[in-house]
Design a protein around this nucleic acid. Structure first.
Lengths: 267, 267
DNA sequence: CCCTTCTGCGTATGACATACGCGTTATTGC
DNA sequence: GCAATAACGCGTATGTCATACGCAGAAGGG
């Protein structure tokens, strides 16, 4: 596992080096016929068209008009390609609309969450990429930063801001992953989303034992699953709960004395 | 994709049929030399020892003392094995300790979340298994049911109970996945967790531009990342926020008139 | 002008999931 | 009892994939 240190100082993981564009473009050999950008763009196209599973080194190479192995002159391993794809498809955040300090944190955070969700929905395959540790790519940092900005003036401690950002970000990913799975089921079965939902309800009705599962039975009988579900419902619901929870924390923090604000062991 | 309908009525997906034990054990041919249970147990052992990636049909077969292809007499595809592994490793929920109706929903839900988290931590590879649609296996339903039970008497609508359960469950998974990635990084680099954290902080300090990332810079300067992090911190923090959010919803619901909870889900 | 360094890429390796079919074994209908 | 039948275990084959290795040609640097 030798690290190629280039222009920077220490030893960044190879994929990070690539993501930050710190790669030494050596001036010695033949001119590269390809570029990282072209390769990543091709990979993103393949993923968008046929899903992440269709992204093989061979397929990407073909798409870009080169041989499989030539890609390895630009990318050290497939994982690195994944990181770059993620970075490219997610992109940098738009500037937040309302930077009012102190008051609008709730709207700002909601907007931030929605924007993140939009990116994920535009590229559902993003959710299939295994997460490789904490954020360290340019766009990841930019989104992180923007999340912290949204909480500026909320009175939260620095660490809590990041914890909140992490919490919301994870929520958005979870919800999007759920929708992605549902969408995958729809594609796989080749029927309409309503059909899939109805089929699921039917399956549940068969499997659920009213004695063993009174709660789920009540849910099924309540008809809450039968109506045409708003695809945004769970997102909106969850986000509101989350924001309410954050609001409670903020109230606790700047209302009371300067205490670590956990509440976990408050009794 | 022909479904093998067996004892039930309709057409369950093959993996579900297996998970519910509805497979017709035909009385015709030679006695099976293996059993689903043995195979799944072996697969779980492999995953626990060497990670999910080490679970190949060949490896499992070897572990169980049979040939690769013989496994396909018990399992229709690897995905089905995954479902069964999940089911086996996650297991059924313990009975909740305090079934006081109406009051103790917060403690009950917290206990439920912690129990779920414990299972995931005991088998971190569970988080690497791609989720295959909404829950429909016996243990999934049992956990779901228990989550609903925890909210019994909270006054929430049936649909909202499930939404809350989903929200909390997703949170637990997200947080556990984060820890799993961290643990994987620790194993991969062969150093201590503190070392990994310190290394991450160093990397961040190199990449973060104080002008472009004032919030993250402030975080780094605040030293919030330097201390020995309690591995439960993010879990406890997030769970408290979530529960506060649910509490707000409950107050809104049973305090006011019987209205759909808030302005978010007007559709 | 040659030597170093980088290029694209053909070939090879080793996993892996899984389709197919064969010989074998136990049960069932007669 | 006895064949017909249906499951069994499993060897073999196929196709896909990531990627190690090494070669031949190109482009600057001395």
């Amino acid at each position: 596992m030798a690290e190629k240190s280039s222009s920077g100082g220490g030893d960044l993981p190879a994929s990070l080096e690539a993501a930050w564009g710190l790669r030494d473009r050596p001036a010695k050999g033949p001119k590269p016929g390809l570029s990282l950008e072209r390769i990543v763009a091709a990979a993103v196209d393949v993923a968008s068209a046929d899903g992440l599973a269709a992204v093989s080194m061979g397929r990407v190479a073909q798409e870009v008009g080169a041989s499989t192995m030539s890609l390895y002159r630009y990318v050290s391993a497939k994982d690195e390609l994944y990181v770059l794809m993620q970075e490219a498809a997610f992109g940098p955040p738009e500037p937040l609309s309302a930077p009012e300090p102190g008051a609008g944190w709730r709207e700002a955070l909601a907007e931030w969450a929605s924007a993140q969700r939009d990116r994920l929905h535009a590229h559902l395959w993003l959710l299939r990429i295994p997460v490789g540790g904490p954020p360290a790519t340019p766009n990841s940092l930019a989104w992180w930063e923007q999340g912290i900005q949204a909480l500026e003036g909320s009175g939260l401690a620095e660490g809590d801001k990041t914890s909140v950002v992490l919490l919301v970000s994870n929520f958005v990913r979870s919800e999007a992953a759920l929708m992605a799975d549902l969408a995958a089921a729809v594609v796989a079965r080749g029927v309409s989303p309503d059909e899939v939902a109805a089929s699921y309800e039917r399956t549940l009705k068969r499997l659920v034992d009213p004695a063993r599962h009174p709660g789920i039975s009540r849910l099924l009988e309540s008809g809450a699953m039968s109506g045409p579900e708003d695809p945004d419902y769970e997102f909106t619901f969850g986000l509101e709960r989350l924001l309410d929870g954050v609001e409670a924390l903020i109230r606790k923090t700047d209302g009371g004395p300067r205490v670590p604000a956990d509440g976990a062991n408050s009794g």
